[in-house]
């Protein structure tokens, strides 16, 4: 049960000797990711300003790094790695599906409202 911990991360590439050691390992990983995020946010390198799928490339990098962090917090700190498949899927799949749906609907609508103002169909800037 919960007392048995799976001790490897990166699909078995890195295997820790004890649960405590794994916790510190994950902390180091999360710290590195956060540092990279803050560094990129301050430097804002030229190449990352290129538009990519409706956003700056940098924003996509931030979002992907955030999901990486979220994965390790859920899997290792919240012990999702050690739960049964049923529980894991009930929690993770439901949430991700609903959130993706909500984000799609709202961002689509927001972009549409912007376009209407922008095309001068409705005047806002007095």
């Amino acid at each position: 049960m919960a007392h048995e911990h799976k001790l490897e991360i990166f699909r078995g590439l890195l295997k820790f000797k004890s649960n405590t050691q794994k916790i510190w390992g994950v902390l180091i990983l999360l710290t590195i990711v956060t540092t990279v995020e803050v560094a990129l946010g301050i430097v804002k390198p030229e190449w990352s300003m290129a538009p990519f799928l409706g956003m700056k490339l940098l924003n996509w990098i931030f979002i992907i790094l955030t999901i990486v962090k979220a994965y390790y917090i859920t899997w290792d700190f919240m012990h999702m790695r050690d739960e049964t498949k049923g529980l894991r899927r009930a929690v993770v799949w439901t949430t991700i599906f609903l959130i993706l749906y909500l984000i799609f609907i709202l961002l689509q609508e927001g972009g549409y409202v912007f376009d209407i103002y922008d095309n001068g169909y409705i005047k806002r800037d007095f």
Partner: peptide, 26 residues
Amino acid sequence: WFFIVSDALTFSGFLAAYGFSRFKFI
């Protein structure tokens, strides 16, 4: 866990609403 799922949806509602307003005034 199920409380966390519902709370996560509440927070994503707020963040998605933030995204909506931001896209509106992008």
